[in-house]
């Protein structure tokens, strides 16, 4: 089962799902539940999910596997982004940075 977050909300895809093409949100967490194995978790920033012929493909602009996230660096990035949001409420860049950092931390299994 694949769980992803599209702009419409969370979507869970089971085997034999109908073909779908969805736009993913910025800073979402993608989870692949596997039988007999641990979940595969990834932070996915923007992009698409396409389901066709019983095959799920995720096309992301930037993505990172949860196991590969540098937690300290992500926390650092989050702190920096939050500081610049506090300094300037309309800082769109910082808002995206914060979202991305949160997604990375969540993918790594950290509490945010």
């Amino acid at each position: 089962m694949v769980i992803a977050k599209t702009v419409e909300g969370e979507i869970g895809i089971l085997p034999r799902h109908a073909p779908v093409l969805g736009v993913l949100v910025e800073g979402g967490v993608l989870r692949v539940k596997r039988e007999g194995e641990d979940d595969l978790v990834a932070a996915v920033h923007g992009g698409f999910i396409s389901v066709a012929d019983n095959e799920v493909s995720v096309l992301a602009e930037v993505a990172e596997l949860g196991s590969e996230v540098d937690v300290a660096a992500a926390r650092d990035a989050l702190a920096r982004a939050q500081a610049s949001i506090e300094a300037n409420q309309e800082d769109a860049d910082a808002a995206i940075q914060a979202k991305r950092a949160r997604a990375r931390l969540r993918a790594a299994g950290e509490e945010v």
Partner: peptide
Amino acid sequence: IPPYFEFEPNADEVLESLLPR
């Protein structure tokens, strides 16, 4: 043949963000 797709949220918006990519 590409299969018939459902779109989230809709075809126009998918195309809007898909084409630049």
